[in-house]
């Protein structure tokens, strides 16, 4: 796969006439590049765990027999699934700070609020994943656990949950990869993660006469490569976890 990537970049270079290893460009761009990557990782450090917690809790709650709990949460999930995340991000960043007491308001807080909104957005999707995981565990498992005298809570903890979580991991890997890509949305509200800082840098190239236009392609190819590596890393990490805990015969029922 690495070979293919290198080949592909070489082809791209020839077609679009740029040089990916141009040292002059990299001297200028590298700081923004690195800062962007670091910031992306920091955002991910907040958004990924938070979205998983939200997803798990909401998914769990939606299975509960109490409609009082599950209906409002269904509205929450349907809202975030029906609306493009970018619009929620924009307005969360703009309107969000005004919900806070005056001394906390700043643009930075707006970006953090937007990040939290992204966590909610992914959380809505993850709740569907976890919910499907719970429902995939055969009902007989719960019955059998209870027939041994386990309370419902104990049965959930030792029998249903271990299986539901294992079943949820593959679709979760896909969703985490989406979250990695979602961080780029923060650029539109001023976040300087990888996409944002690269975009600003690109605008500088476009409007400074001395610089080559072909540099733009270098920047975006490099950015694409980094995202590619990040999504790959995330999915591979979860696949590794899946393999570690995989039990033969426990496979999700495809609907």
């Amino acid at each position: 796969m690495a070979v293919g990537t290198i080949l592909f970049i070489l082809v791209l270079q020839t077609v679009l006439r740029f040089n990916i290893l141009d040292p002059v460009l990299w001297a200028l761009y590298f700081p923004s590049f690195l800062d962007g990557i670091v910031l992306t990782l920091r955002y991910l450090g907040i958004i990924l765990p938070l979205s998983a917690v939200i997803g798990f809790t909401v998914g769990w709650a939606r299975i509960a027999p109490f409609r009082t709990l599950s209906w409002p949460l269904s509205v929450f999930v349907d809202f975030f699934r029906g609306v493009p995340p970018i619009i929620v991000v924009i307005f969360a960043a703009v309107l969000g700070p005004s919900l806070l007491p005056a001394r906390f308001r700043s643009q930075d807080i707006g970006i953090i609020i937007a990040a939290l909104t992204l966590a909610m957005h992914s959380g809505a999707y993850q709740s569907e994943i976890f919910r499907a995981g719970f429902m995939s565990v055969p009902r007989g498992q719960l019955e059998a656990a209870q027939s041994l005298g386990m309370t419902r809570g104990a049965a959930m903890r030792y029998v249903v949950l271990p299986q539901a979580l294992r079943l949820s991991i593959p679709p979760l890997a896909n969703e985490f990869a989406v979250v990695v890509k979602d961080t780029s949305l923060l650029a539109i509200v001023g976040g300087f993660e990888l996409f944002g800082s690269s975009f600003i840098f690109e605008q500088q190239i476009l409007f400074s006469p001395g610089n080559q236009l072909s540099w733009i392609f270098v920047v975006w190819t490099a950015v694409a490569l980094v995202y590619f590596v990040m999504t790959f890393a995330v999915t591979e990490l979860l696949n590794a976890i899946d393999r570690r805990y995989h039990v033969k015969g426990l496979e999700a029922v495809t609907v």
Binding site: E143, A145, S147
Partner: peptide, 15 residues
């Protein structure tokens, strides 16, 4: 706890 049960579909804990 006092009365055990064996099911038609075994229901062994798969994990």
């Amino acid at each position: 706890q006092q009365v055990g049960m064996v099911f038609q579909s075994f229901n062994l804990f798969a994990h």
